[in-house]
Design a protein around this nucleic acid. Structure first.
Lengths: 347, 347
DNA sequence: TTGTAGGCGTTATCAG
DNA sequence: CTGATAACGCCTACAA
């Protein structure tokens, strides 16, 4: 840099201003400097910049690699994040929260305190991700993405999961369904738990019967959705209700689209037509749900937008040297397609 | 660091050795230093470390975000990479090759020359990714993952795509099939092109008929697999061959599992039973292929292992301050399941 | 196993 | 819009 400066009859600082961006430099000076740099084969050293400015210009994205990387959910979220960072000088780094040492948040906090990252986007949907409190306490610039941590003053951007389920249930209720069963996601995923609670709450509000076997567990995969519905109809698909608790569902709400796909397959196995004999609804609006023989009624979730907003909020907070604050809950919407229809008289 | 050193009656250098890792420090001294650091609330500054050592300790993973992030292929590959880096002091950073400015490789090269990353893993499966030459020329420590760039002296780790197709074709040939059609992936993906070539070569070697309509294009999705097979049977599924060029396929080889799934669905639509009337084989060994009504014969590809090896080779090269070299081609294997069977007499 | 001396390439600060 | 100087906090190389 010294050489370039000398060559141009300016100071290192002026050269610095050209390469670091932001500061105003007279256009003619800038050109002269860029030219000299090219000629002298000079390359700006970002390591020195980071060292001197005490900012790494890396944003860390912390998530459970095993469970999320490779899912379309994470892909979409990630692209949203990247699209925002693309317009800044920041780059992205990924960190795995599956690792043992992450369990208490110390390791993530260390990333910040050692200046490895300037801030964190934590995509940690598991109810056992108790490390958020640690990060909060240590004043790590961080945004939790995908869930709204309960009762804490943690900045988050999430989706309105409960509303999504309510939209589905109301849709089915409006079609005359009074026996809706549910395929739940894994208990340890916060979002999954919230979707289940919203279903239970809806049944309670409307006075719908909801015996224990109406709620079958799954783990967000096609196969578990299939198995769950087999259990829903364990005593046969055409069972006439003798006792309230044995009524046969006329509609299935799955906590995500993959399980809804499994549910559709199980219905086929059971000889039930969708939607004539059984309505099925999912959640997530996966692309594949739009191109099936019977397309899937579902909830559209603005996942990429969630990525964008979380990144934008973090970047903005960092630029102003303050901690991000406040919770954002993004709206979801009902997508009505061919897998749901009016309930028909029981056989 | 100065404070901690003074507190313990040692030099900064000794404190440095404790935190930088690697170097030998007397256990008692180490303990004393760690304790003092805790007490003084000292935190090691990785920015200074990087600056001073001229190594960022970041590995860049460059890929096409839009097309790969969120796929199970990339997820698996990524986890393989991460598992290796987890045992080093290196972290991962992701860079998007979709961006315009990446087209000529200058931007990726700049990442290295500005010391933003110590090396690159380039997951660039597209035939139009012509920037590899630029990177090679600028002596960027880099490994190309997933494809073996033709005719260049670039370090790469890839899968034996051609062998995979040969295994599938030989399997079907052994079952008596003489009319095998192919569902190709997109032309601009190198791997896809290689799979198609291997199919064509096999037909040529065995003298099998392979009229133009036997090769239908797809784009690695379920839907395009379905459409391709509809075109294979455009004149009806039971067509008796009158001319050689109109013979009806008894087996379909799809360039990936997703398209094979679409193919199975198309077969169902056409009233063809799998495998009795039509054998279908895929490529990739996706988990879902093992749990269908008719499970899928496919090629297992060690994608995670590919990630592991590429990361290991790069890390190793960096430690020895030299450029990675040589090509590794990982073996693939045939997984025989229920979607393929002996050809039967034509109706 | 530990210490010494010097330097890495940028930015901050404040002035002009 | 530009400049002068002093950090920044660690590492390298060599020595003991």
């Amino acid at each position: 840099m010294e050489d370039v400066a000398r060559e141009c009859g300016v100071t290192k600082k002026t050269v610095s201003r050209v390469f670091a961006g932001g500061a105003a430099v007279k256009p003619s000076t800038r050109e002269k400097i860029l030219e000299a740099a090219r000629r002298l084969n000079y390359e700006y050293n970002t390591l020195a910049q980071s060292f001197s400015s005490k900012r790494s210009r890396f944003i860390g994205v912390a998530t459970a690699f095993q469970q999320l990387v490779g899912t379309s959910y994470f892909g979409e979220l990630f692209r949203g994040i990247a699209s925002v960072l693309n317009e800044t000088e920041m780059d992205l780094s990924l960190f795995d929260t599956d690792t043992d040492s992450f369990s208490d948040g110390e390791k993530l906090a260390k990333l910040y305190r050692r200046r490895r990252v300037d801030g964190l986007l934590v995509v940690a949907p598991h109810t056992y991700d108790r490390f958020l409190g640690t990060l909060e306490r240590l004043h790590v610039p961080m945004i939790v993405v995908g869930v709204q941590p309960a009762g804490k003053d943690i900045c988050s951007v999430s989706l309105d999961d409960a509303k999504g389920i309510r939209l589905l249930c109301e849709h089915l209720y409006g079609l005359g369904h009074r026996n809706m069963a549910f395929v739940a996601g894994p208990d340890f995923v916060t979002t999954s738990e919230q979707r289940k609670q919203a279903y239970v709450q809806f049944c309670r509000d409307k006075g719908l019967e909801c015996p224990a076997h109406y709620i079958q567990p799954g783990s967000f995969s096609i196969q578990t959705g299939r198995e769950a519905v087999r259990r829903h109809f364990a005593d046969g698909p055409r069972r006439v209700p003798r006792q309230r608790s044995h009524a046969c569902p006329t509609a299935i709400v799955a906590a995500n689209d993959l399980m809804a796909l499994g549910a559709m397959d199980a219905a086929r196995e059971l000889g039930l037509r969708v939607p004539e004999d059984l309505s099925i609804a999912g959640f997530d609006n996966l692309p594949v749900g739009g191109e099936l023989p019977a397309t899937l009624t579902t909830i559209h979730t603005p996942v990429m937008e969630m990525g964008r907003q979380s990144a934008a909020i973090l970047v903005n907070a960092l630029q102003q040297s303050r901690l991000p604050a406040g919770s954002t809950v993004l709206d979801v919407s009902l997508v009505t397609r061919a897998s749901t229809a009016k309930v028909r008289a029981r056989l």
